[in-house]
């Protein structure tokens, strides 16, 4: 049985006796080489302890450690920024540009297509909102777009196979005393209906 270090130390100091002394001497006689190594280690450790200055904090240790930590934290960033020289950076940008330049043409065409489609959709939606405003909340027909310029007047649209109906609500009643059939034209400026072609306004649908 290998004696522990303290027992060996006691044996070397001559403090052992009796059975303990006998046991250690027996182990030493059988393990001479191992004992020599242990004694060498002990001597090496002793020599190191005697020649190396014990650990000492530098002056202003907090400041020193803070600067060390700051340097460690900044090191990766500075490394990334300094790793690429201006030439390298220009080269990488040019490389990216050269790779992307073949995508500009299809990207431009796609953008124009999207803008064109969006434009057509915006035009349609504008027409629809004007119709709803004109209807004043009344029911709308798919085949009719109604605009009612007079305030307080609204329109309803009904449809069947034989006819269509636009019903105007809120119109001022014509006085019963008025004979609308023989009512004379007033002097207000108004298109002369007998001339048929009144306002020569070109229809843009034919242009």
């Amino acid at each position: 049985m290998k004696p522990d270090k303290q027992t060996l130390q006691s044996w070397m100091n001559g403090d052992l006796s009796g059975e303990a002394l006998h046991t250690v001497e027996k182990w030493v006689s059988e393990n001479t080489q191992e004992l020599e190594e242990m004694l060498n280690w002990d001597q090496t450790s002793q020599m190191l302890r005697e020649n190396i200055v014990p650990e000492q904090d530098p002056p202003y240790p907090d400041f020193f450690h803070h600067k060390i930590r700051q340097s460690i934290e900044e090191e990766p960033r500075s490394y990334d920024s300094e790793k690429k020289t201006p030439e390298l950076r220009d080269h990488s940008a040019n490389s990216l540009w050269s790779r992307m330049r073949y995508l500009w043409a299809p990207a431009a065409v796609a953008a124009m297509t999207v803008c064109f489609y969006a434009g057509t959709q915006m035009s349609s939606s504008t027409t629809g909102s004007a119709d709803l405003a004109g209807l004043g909340g009344a029911s709308a027909s798919q085949t009719a777009e109604i605009y009612v310029p007079q305030g307080g007047v609204s329109a309803s649209v009904y449809e069947n196979e034989q006819s269509g109906v636009i019903l105007l609500h809120g119109l001022e009643a014509i006085p019963d005393a008025m004979d609308i059939v023989s009512a004379a034209p007033s002097g207000k400026p108004y298109p002369n209906t007998s001339e048929m072609v009144l306002v020569k306004q070109m229809n843009p649908n034919y242009l």
Binding site: E145, P149, E161, G164, I166, L168
Partner: peptide, 18 residues
């Protein structure tokens, strides 16, 4: 002007405006 309508008129299908 009381009403303005954009509408498809069909032959033999009258539109009545109330």
């Amino acid at each position: 002007k009381m009403m303005k309508a954009d509408r498809v008129l069909k032959i033999a299908k009258p539109l009545f405006i109330g």
